[in-house]
Amino acid sequence: MKSITYWHRNLMVLWMGAFMSEGAISLIVPILPLFLKSLGNYTPSQLSLLSGSIFAVTFLIKAVVSPLWGKLSDRVGHKPMLLRAAGGLSFCCFMIAIAPNVWLIILARAIQGIFSGYINNAESMIATEAPKEHKGWALGTLATGDTAGLLCGPIIGGTLATFVGFRGTFFIAALLMLAVFGLSWKLVTETFEPVPASEKMGIRDTLSAQPHIKLLLLIFVLTLIVQATNNAVNPILSLYLDDLLPSAPHLPLISGIVAALPGIATVLSAGYLGRLGDMHGQRKLLIGGLALGTLIYIPQIFVTNIWGLGSLRFITGLSIAALLPALQAILTQNTQPAALGRIFSYNQTFQALGNVCGAMISAGIASAFGYVQVFTAVCVMEALGLLLAWRLKC
C-alpha cells in the first residue's frame, strides 16, 4: 500500500489544482449571462434559454465523452487526464474571451465539455490512493479545494468584470488554467499500473462484476439529481438579481458575491461533515444533506430581497457540502478497486447529465414561468433525492 506521505502529498497538490480549476470555471459563471446580454438585444425569455443552453452544452458533451476518458485513464493513468483537462479549459476560456458573438461561445463551451474532467480525475486518484478509513476525510478535504475555488471564483470574476471588463476576465481564467496545467505536470506524481488487456471490460460487464450493482445504479441516479439541483440556479442567478436590483451599480460584483455564498458555507463545513460521514455512516450524512436542501429551498421561493436570498444561499452550501463527498465515498466503498476508474467515469457521466438537466430545467422554467419558479423545481428535485436516499442499503 502506498505510504500516507505519498497520498497526502498528492492530496495537497490536487487540492490547489482543484481550487484553481474550479476558480477559473466559476469566475465566469455569474458574468457569462451578463456578457451574453451585452452581445445582442435579447428578451428576458431569450436570455434565459441562451444562458441555459450555453451552460448545458458543456455538460451534454461531457456526458458523452466521459466514459471514453475513463477507459483511457485505466490505460494511461489519471495524471495525463489532469493535463488534458487543464490545457483544454485554458483554450476554451481564451475562445470565449475573443468571441464576437454567441455562436462562438456555444462552440467554446462544447469544446470545454470534450476536455473537462480535472476535478473528477483528482477525486478518482485520491479515492484510489487514500486508505479506506480516511477516504471520507480525504474526499471531503479535496472537496474544500473545489468549493474554495467555487467560493473565490465568482467574487473574483465579479470584481474583475467591474474593473477589466468581461473579456479581460476570460483571459485571466485562461491564464489560471495554464497555471493548473503547469502545477499538475510538475508536482503530481503517480505510480500507475495499467489495467491488463485481459481484464478490460465494457460497461455492462464492468457493472455486472460489482458486488452491489443495484446500489451503484441508485448512486448514479442520486448523483444526477444532486448535480441538477446544484446547477439549476447558476444560469439564471445573475439575471434574477438583475430583476431584484434593477439598474444596480456593480451588478457583476453583487452577482459574484451571492453566487459565492454557498461555497463559503461548503468550505467551512466540508471537512467536519466528511468526518461525521466516516464516524456515523455516509448514508446518514447523505440523507441529512438532502433533507436540509429540501427545507432550505422552500423559503427561497418567496424571498424578495438580496439579504434574505444571500442568507438562504449560504445555508444551501451546508447541504451541498454533505452530498457529493458522501455519494463518492459510498461509491468507492462498494466498487472493486480495479474498476474504480471506470465506475467513477460512469458516475461523471451522470454528474454531467445532472448538470444538463439542471441547466435546461432552469432555462425552460425561467423562460415560461419566471426565475422564482426555478427554486420551486429545485425543491421538488431535492425531495425526490431524499426519497431515493432512504432506499440505500449500505
Rank of each mutant, 00 (worst) to 15 (best):
G149F: 03
W390V: 14
S51H: 07
A228P: 05
R313M: 13
P194R: 08
V303L: 07
F166C: 09
A110P: 02
A85G: 01
Y346Q: 04
S26G: 04
T159P: 00
R204E: 10
I31G: 04
F375T: 06
T294G: 06
F115G: 04
A326W: 01
V29K: 01
I254Q: 06
G354E: 08
F35M: 10
Y118T: 01
W390A: 13
L139H: 01
T159G: 15
Y42K: 11
A97E: 07
M12K: 15
P252M: 09
F163A: 08
A110C: 11
L331G: 02
E193K: 15
Y297S: 08
F59M: 05
L253E: 14
T147F: 15
L27M: 15
L239H: 09
L251E: 09
G87R: 04
E199D: 14
C394P: 09
C357P: 00
P131M: 08
G341I: 11
C379L: 02
L150V: 11
S45H: 12
P246T: 05
T191R: 14
I25M: 13
I172M: 10
S3M: 04
L285P: 06
N334W: 08
Q46R: 11
Y371L: 05
V65K: 04
I172T: 13
F369A: 14
P33N: 10
L388D: 07
A368K: 10
Q227T: 00
L273P: 03
P235I: 08
A97C: 06
R9W: 13
I203Y: 02
A24M: 02
P249W: 07
W390C: 04
S311D: 11
L327D: 12
F220V: 03
I25S: 06
P33D: 10
Q333T: 00
I155V: 14
A232Q: 00
F192R: 05
G157Y: 02
T189P: 01
L222S: 10
V164M: 11
S198F: 09
I172D: 06
W15R: 04
S26F: 14
I236D: 07
L150Q: 12
I213M: 15
G113P: 03
A259I: 05
L387K: 02
P299K: 13
F115C: 11
T162S: 15
K2W: 13
M20C: 10
I114P: 01
G52Q: 06
P325G: 09
L39M: 15
L49C: 12
D146T: 12
G277N: 11
R342A: 10
E199H: 09
A383V: 07
L384C: 15
A97N: 05
S319N: 06
H8Y: 12
A24G: 12
L14G: 04
A368H: 11
T316M: 06
L11S: 08
P235A: 06
G308P: 10
A130M: 11
F55W: 07
T223L: 05
V221A: 13
T162H: 14
S208R: 14
C357M: 15
M16W: 14
V233L: 15
I301F: 11
Y297W: 13
I54W: 09
S66A: 12
L251C: 07
I315C: 03
Q227W: 14
L353I: 11
P33I: 03
V65Y: 00
A359V: 00
A63D: 02
V226R: 10
F59C: 00
V378A: 09
D205N: 15
L387N: 02
S73F: 04
S51C: 08
H78Q: 11
K393V: 05
T332C: 00
